[in-house]
Design a protein around this nucleic acid. Structure first.
Lengths: 200, 200
DNA sequence: CATGAAACTGGAACGTGTTCCTATTATGGA
DNA sequence: TCCATAATAGGAACACGTTCCAGTTTCATG
């Protein structure tokens, strides 16, 4: 609820504050991309963002908040770029699978970053609920948009299906980032789930 | 793969080793039940199990291994007690929901323990794959058994559906233990997913 | 029983997330 | 412009997971 930690684009604060926040998130993404969750060390983030450790903690109260906020920012970017073009595919399942494949491919191209963000997401507790909720909303919107392009009034079933697909996606992602399943297995399992839920 | 960390009931080693292993897991469960993930501190586990810290690490190479092993033991116990009686219900979905409700209720009766075990499960990396896989097998078996009691030859769809339900269950559990969703929401979402997947 | 290997104990030590404190610097209103 | 307040820098300190080590005990084997 605090404005400092809000997800929507840097809304409040001075230009200097917005700049610091951006530098911190950029450093986070850079370190996560290089070495994953373990490489995102608070001292390293602070140094790379040219900020004192205490200041880092003033902007983000924990490593988890930091990573989930970074995730939310990346997610908003990805979501915006997907919304530009209409989703190709003749049926709901084709379109959903298209979106999932595209997103998953993007994530798998940056395995360390994905590992860091997924780990943080799964480890987050109630104090990160706001950020988590934002990500959940974006994900559900992305999926329902693929299911029913341009449609605004969705049934409860549509939303429930989107949430189930999101759950499967998350589980698959966790399995993949923790090295328990291959990329191919991950994709196959997700697509199977989509077909089971959307029979068209 | 090491015999010491095997999941199936204390198979190898001397009686003293089996006893130490049991004491350690008992201490883990006790501490987790009291205070959750954070309360399971390696020094505290060692002290309560009356074992040196180095010995604890000889039996379980990390806190995550320790907690996931504890989870597997609890899961085997629960699974055994469920297998005793036939599952009530006239349809697949009724039976699956019965099993989910019962299991979830059990977990929610021990919120701290559930939080500790779920957190560990979600944080586990590839080095814990064996233990994780065991839990996954047990869960899938539990669900397919509820779907088709006594049946041994299952279709690919049956297994896929069970896995999807397992994914939803896990996501719901994570949401609940991290304080993002209430018990009622958790249950409702799971049951909705079951109905979407098993339309009978 | 004697002996060498393996396991165990007790505790020091290290790394990283987190907290805290003091001195310094930016900021915004009178 | 000047002042009060907040924000930041720099860094010490603490907690807990993890590693490591020296000395002791247990245990299997000849």
């Amino acid at each position: 609820m605090s404005s400092t930690n809000s997800l929507s684009v840097d809304e409040l604060g001075s230009a200097a504050q917005r700049d610091r926040r951006k530098r911190i998130l950029d450093a986070t993404i850079a370190l996560a991309t290089q070495g994953g969750f373990d490489a995102v060390q608070m001292r390293a983030v602070a140094e790379q963002a040219d900020v004192a450790l205490g200041t880092l903690y003033r902007y983000f109260p924990s490593k988890i908040h930091l990573l989930v906020s970074a995730l939310a920012r990346e997610f908003e970017r990805a979501n915006a770029s997907i919304g530009e073009r209409p989703v190709p595919g003749d049926t709901s399942s084709e379109r959903v699978i298209y979106v999932l494949r595209k997103t998953t491919r993007g994530l798998q191209g940056d395995p360390h970053l994905t590992e860091a963000l997924t780990r943080a997401f799964m480890f987050a507790d109630a104090s990160v609920a706001a950020e988590i909720h934002t990500v959940g909303i974006l994900l559900t919107r992305m999926l329902t948009h693929a299911m029913h392009p341009g449609q605004t009034d969705l049934t409860d079933d549509d939303i429930a299906i989107a949430r189930v697909i999101g759950d499967v996606w998350l589980s698959a992602l966790v399995g993949w980032v923790t090295g328990r399943t291959s990329a191919a297995e991950t994709a196959a399992h997700m697509e199977k789930a989509v077909h089971l839920l959307l029979r068209d």
